[in-house]
Computed example of a mutant assay.
Amino acid sequence: MNLKTVQTPALLLDLDKFTRNCNWMKEKAERLNVALRPHLKTGKCIEFARTQMTSPSGPATVSTLLEAEYFFNLGVIDLIYAVGISPGKFERAVNLREAGCDLKVILDNKEAAEQFSAYCEERKIPCPVLIEIDVDGHRSGVKPDSDDLIEIAKILQGKAYFAGVLTHAGDSYKCVGQAACLKAQENERDSLVHCANRLRKAGFEPKIISAGSTPTAVFAESWEGVTEVRCGVYCLFDLVMAGLKVCTIDQIALSLLVEVTGHQKEKGWVITDGGWMALSRDRGTAAQAVDQGYGLVCDIDGNPIDDLIVASANQEHGIITHRDGRLVDPKDFPIGTRLRILPNHACAMAAQHPQYFVVRKGKIVDIWNRIYGWQPKGVSL
């Protein structure tokens, strides 16, 4: 199997770029004296995770309990489930604790804290809990100066016990360039440290002070007062990150291999077998200075071609055009031509596929299987 014979569309992982991105972040975290707790939601794959993590047992972050179960069964012990815990997930989370997984959960309100505390008391199984902090108004979390911060910690004094604070500086995805991302990172760090100090004054010691987003992690100069950093897409990067100037195009380690199936000559279109089912519906660059459509078009070796983008997509059809509207000459892309499409959002593209075709120096050297979904394995009526 090689890039000319593998069935398309196929998800390609450039092993050298991926490894280089992972090692760069490990080295930076070590230099800044902060633990790296990589997010495994992008890869959802054990081989992928082992390259990201600083040890085979973690620490690491997950976004679903299916990920937690999968990685724990393969030896990853130290995990944070970084989505607010809700009653329908109490049993699965506590079952992981009972089985020996050092799983931490998060929440951001008194109701969830009371309900989870009651459940852990009933099961007689301890579980550490992090309070999620909203540092930038991006989505969920307790405001840094809210009275709820201390009230939630007071509730978490039984089997479900207070372990620290956590945030995701999601508004950093609106920042462009080093200065803006660094400002977001400093706000993220300082807001978390402020919360930790408020809790200490109230008699609660936060053992974990957890920050994390790729734009802030890439540009951080100091994490003083923070114990760990969570980030995920840095290992692959994508066009959204390139649009924020967090990475360069040639650092993007993920692409979709497609094949030309036809043309619309009068419209200057090239048609491929890579539609939104393979690319994803993510249009994250649409709000940026450079709109990359559904993805940037490269040759089979991964080199961008003459400002071509996937301008539109149907379920199984991708339509390639010039960004400026010039007509594409069909003779330049005969039927059967193979191209690679760089993703707007690496997590979203990867989520469409059951495996990575791992590529090194233009050759497929391995296949890594990945998981997806939310339901426990073997679920039945």
Rank of each mutant, 00 (worst) to 15 (best):
T8E: 12
T8R: 07
T8V: 13
A10I: 10
A10N: 11
A10L: 13
L11Y: 07
L12K: 01
L12P: 00
L13Y: 03
D14K: 04
L15I: 09
L15K: 12
D16R: 12
D16I: 12
D16C: 07
K17H: 02
F18Q: 07
F18R: 06
T19R: 13
R20A: 07
R20P: 04
R20K: 12
N23K: 14
N23G: 08
K26Q: 12
K26R: 11
E27K: 13
K28M: 08
K28A: 05
K28D: 05
K28P: 07
R31E: 14
V34D: 11
L36H: 09
L36C: 14
L36V: 13
L36I: 11
R37P: 03
P38A: 13
P38V: 08
H39E: 11
H39Y: 14
K41H: 02
K41M: 04
T42P: 04
T42K: 12
K44W: 12
K44F: 08
C45W: 02
C45I: 06
C45Q: 04
I46T: 07
I46K: 09
E47S: 14
E47V: 11
F48L: 05
T51I: 13
M53H: 09
T54Q: 03
T54N: 04
T54I: 08
S55V: 03
P56Q: 05
P56V: 07
P59S: 06
P59L: 11
A60Y: 01
T61E: 03
T61R: 03
T61Q: 05
T61K: 03
V62C: 02
V62N: 01
S63I: 01
T64D: 01
L66D: 01
L66E: 04
L66P: 02
E67Y: 00
E67I: 00
E67L: 02
E67G: 00
E69T: 04
Y70E: 00
Y70T: 01
Y70P: 01
F71A: 02
F71W: 01
F71K: 00
F72C: 00
N73E: 15
N73G: 13
L74K: 15
L74I: 05
G75N: 05
G75H: 00
G75Q: 04
V76P: 01
V76H: 03
V76S: 02
V76T: 06
I77D: 06
I77E: 06
D78P: 03
D78R: 04
I80H: 02
I80R: 02
Y81R: 06
V83G: 10
V83F: 11
V83H: 07
G84A: 14
I85N: 11
S86D: 08
G88T: 11
G88M: 07
G88F: 08
K89L: 14
F90R: 09
E91R: 15
R92K: 14
R92A: 15
R92H: 10
V94F: 13
N95I: 14
L96F: 12
L96S: 09
